[in-house]
Design a protein around this nucleic acid. Structure first.
Lengths: 156, 156
DNA sequence: AGTATTTATCATATTTTCATGAGAAACACA
DNA sequence: TGTGTTTCTCATGAAAATATGATAAATACT
């Protein structure tokens, strides 16, 4: 022991999913994008990413096509695709994992010691994932890079 | 794949630590408490908990004593012991794990796509762990169970 | 001194997560 | 129809987190 575990809110896999979908949203012109491209561009393990994206496709978040000109595309407009939908297949952001003390049931009726103090924050996190869209993140990227507004053509 | 990972902010081990310390704080009368007792009472793996508490002892958060009448005790007054100190040896709550997209460096200068939106929440979480004390949780427990004040003897 | 009790430490097992590699299936295009 | 490209799927491997069991070391009590 002594080694620190990730501590991150989402798993490595969930993070891959998030970054890959973000990439797809930024490369929506024309043909689908191959796993090869994404994996290389974002430095992710190719086959592992393939499986990850496959699961998102099964969830209806992406469309996949095989063969030449195949690859993945968003199946949902990026301004209607929440981070929650992307991460949820891989990480349980609600339900369990809410209670700091790991109680199976932890609510206003049967609260753990931390419930009342933690509740608000947990709720905010939940809301963040549910209400933040892929589009929001892209907008913020462009905004932050260029100055919050104005330049119609996205960079890159 | 398809199985959801914990999704919890802290690891199983960190959760054990938190719950065990909380238990210790509530049983501070007289003799130290043995791992045996805590493990049984809180349904945790005995030897694993032993190691976990040992690490907290090395950090100066608990004192440990061997032999008859041995066990663990708080080494710090519960109103000056933050949740951060308890969990930090097992989970990296700050630094890495802050960036949603897993960037090694993610700050105001070199932000990831989610940085500006996520920053505030991450900060709040960090503050929660740093500023919430063990005493706060115990007070809340008693308060929530009995009605915010009054009954001197704490319920079990 | 001897004994029972309890933590400390070591070696190992189990489970979950993350990752790799090879081949099958689907598809576009010539 | 054939060929190359790409996802899909399976089998396997590696690493980390979690857990177990046995033994050593320390200590209180008789």
């Amino acid at each position: 022991m002594g080694g620190q575990s990730s501590g991150s809110l989402i798993s490595q896999t969930g993070e891959y999913a998030l970054r890959a979908v973000l990439y797809l949203a930024q490369h929506q012109e024309g043909d689908p994008v191959s796993v090869e491209t994404i994996a290389e561009e974002l430095s992710m393990p190719r086959n592992y990413l393939s499986k990850t994206l496959h699961l998102l496709a099964k969830r209806g978040i992406l469309t996949s096509a095989r063969g030449p000109r195949g690859g993945f595309e968003l199946a949902v407009p990026s301004d209607r695709l929440s981070l929650f939908e992307i991460v949820e297949p891989f990480d349980d952001l609600e339900g369990r994992g809410q209670c700091l003390l790991g109680r199976p049931e932890c609510n206003d009726q049967t609260p753990c010691a931390a419930h009342h103090r933690w509740k608000d924050l947990a709720q905010r996190v939940s809301t963040f994932f549910r209400e933040t869209t892929v589009d929001d993140l892209i907008a913020e990227m462009n905004g932050a890079a260029a100055g919050a507004a104005g330049n119609g053509s996205g960079p890159d």
